[in-house]
Design a binder for these strands. Sequence first.
DNA 1: CCTGAGTTCTATACCGGTACAGTACGTTCG
DNA 2: CGAACGTACTGTACCGGTATAGAACTCAGG
Lengths: 343, 343
Amino acid sequence: MAKVTLQSIADQVGVSRMTVSNAFSRPDQLSAELRARILAAAAELGYVGPDPAARALARGRTGAVGLLLNGPLSEAFADEVAAAFVASVSDELTARGLALTVLTPPRDESFFPARDVGMDAAIVYTCEPDSAGVDWLARRAIPMVAVDQDLGEAVPRVLVDDRVGARAAAEHLAALGHTRVAVLTLARPGTPVRTDEPDVLSTSHPARERMAGWREGLGEREPVVGYVALGTEGDPYAAALELLRTADVTAVLCFSDVFAYAVVRAAEELGRSVPGDLSVVGFDDNPLAATVRPALTTVRQDVRAKGRIAVERLTDVLAGRPAEPVVLPTELVVRESTGPAPA
Amino acid sequence: MAKVTLQSIADQVGVSRMTVSNAFSRPDQLSAELRARILAAAAELGYVGPDPAARALARGRTGAVGLLLNGPLSEAFADEVAAAFVASVSDELTARGLALTVLTPPRDESFFPARDVGMDAAIVYTCEPDSAGVDWLARRAIPMVAVDQDLGEAVPRVLVDDRVGARAAAEHLAALGHTRVAVLTLARPGTPVRTDEPDVLSTSHPARERMAGWREGLGEREPVVGYVALGTEGDPYAAALELLRTADVTAVLCFSDVFAYAVVRAAEELGRSVPGDLSVVGFDDNPLAATVRPALTTVRQDVRAKGRIAVERLTDVLAGRPAEPVVLPTELVVRESTGPAPA
DNA sequence: CCTGAGTTCTATACCGGTACAGTACGTTCG
DNA sequence: CGAACGTACTGTACCGGTATAGAACTCAGG
């Protein structure tokens, strides 16, 4: 059977192709009676509806929004917080009649999603400003919204107040009398597990901001005894063991709740009780944080709101409205993993 | 600035438009020297590369594959097993130079991803054969692969041997002397929480097959004392409490590890010890199953393999190769949540 | 010197729609 | 009763590429 197009239906019914197009895409442009006849003819011929590719070319819109990630999706999902963000973005896009296309770094440059996939706009999640993906999107002039990252003034951003949250966590420890505090945070990929060099820190916005907040909150005390910087491929538990064995501290500030829980388990392994001998603070308020024992003191952020607001900003941009930068609040949640510094 | 197209570069360099197209898409079709000149001119004019929408129309391929889900993405992610499957699919597609577009049921028919988004093929995950999404894909003649569902002979399927796994779980309980066994499984949406009517069961392939396997494995004994059928919106913990309060059983077979853990907590709440007073078996071997106490006896399936094989089948279909149906094995994993039936 | 087989580039013909500016024909209103 | 307007439909001009067949030229082999 030959391909069924708008034209074949137009011929069948005896109207112009444009009228058939309108029957599907702009019902108010023709009489109900004629539209019914056209739809009937279409059904009879087995016409499904306008071809998305042709429509995308003619309209200049695809109906899809890209979500640019800095690693494979399985990596994002290893972190429950990132997974919740992705889910939130998808839900919000659905509610607005947009589809989600996942843009991951390619294995092979021959097909580069950020360069080769049609989309109306993109949400950039935690990607370095100089990454290839961001570069392609920018060169294609695809409207972007940056989440958990600063891509410059031109790109609207949705951030979390990591610094204030981290400062609150550090002040909490300080108020409990802790003076020897370590940090377990993210490092640039490839960095050795343990280091005291501040410049191996991950350049991600949250990593920088949280570190800055911790330093502020620890105030005049020797701010950080040492820290373990962990690449994405690192094993948090091994890093935590290493940290506790080599650093003489009474508390640890962690980049995430997953890291914090690793510290808790490492402390148990080494026979140190939490929070009796060691206080541990996480970040994000992962569902995990409330479930494990001892429940983790952490800094809460509202991940679903982050996704929702990112999509709102995106639709603002698509509609030509100005999109103000947003900074979402954080909140210290004190649970069982922190206590007074041991004497 | 006027839009930069292939034609503008062709004019600038003084070659045909086709040659410029080849410079980007088929480098072996022209001399290296000319290609370099074209690329230089393109860079100078700020040409990014062929427009994906136009290319999709001309080539008849988009480079994107749809993943059809039967609910919002956040719902899929509530289940760690489904999330792992999605991640696996994405990783495998990336490895093959394809992008992933998420196809969820629309809030509003005006934009229906399964109907309106361009894609080369689709993976259908746990969707009812008569759902609107499947119907649109079928009418568009989009190549499909069905996962955890049977869409008829024409659609290649990737299944898990749920029945054999469930039977093994039931036989395990039988061997331990259990004769009064309940089931906690999925129901059709909207079904009341507790029922003994078999036909409220979810029509999903896994739900049917697991139930069949459980019945087989319990053999000649009164097969199932009763079961709680749980819609997707139901609260497993509440259902588990209800079940244990009303059914006089020594063991519960569950549709998932999440359900099983809910039963464990409900048993604790009611003062019954697991596995002393009550044995519980889950399904899937969710990471959770090994972490919680008591660790859950469960039926393992390899979710990453399921994603990988689904994508393999999909590429087979795209290449015109026949795609044989696949049934992946399951394996009973005995941990701490099952023990001899109490006297 | 002629033939056949590469290269390298071009001409033509689509791919399947939508936007926009009409045209033709009632209706309404001053 | 004529101007102004709304409704219903059409004609034309794109949207920005790619496939395919062929033309022009080079080169090796007989």
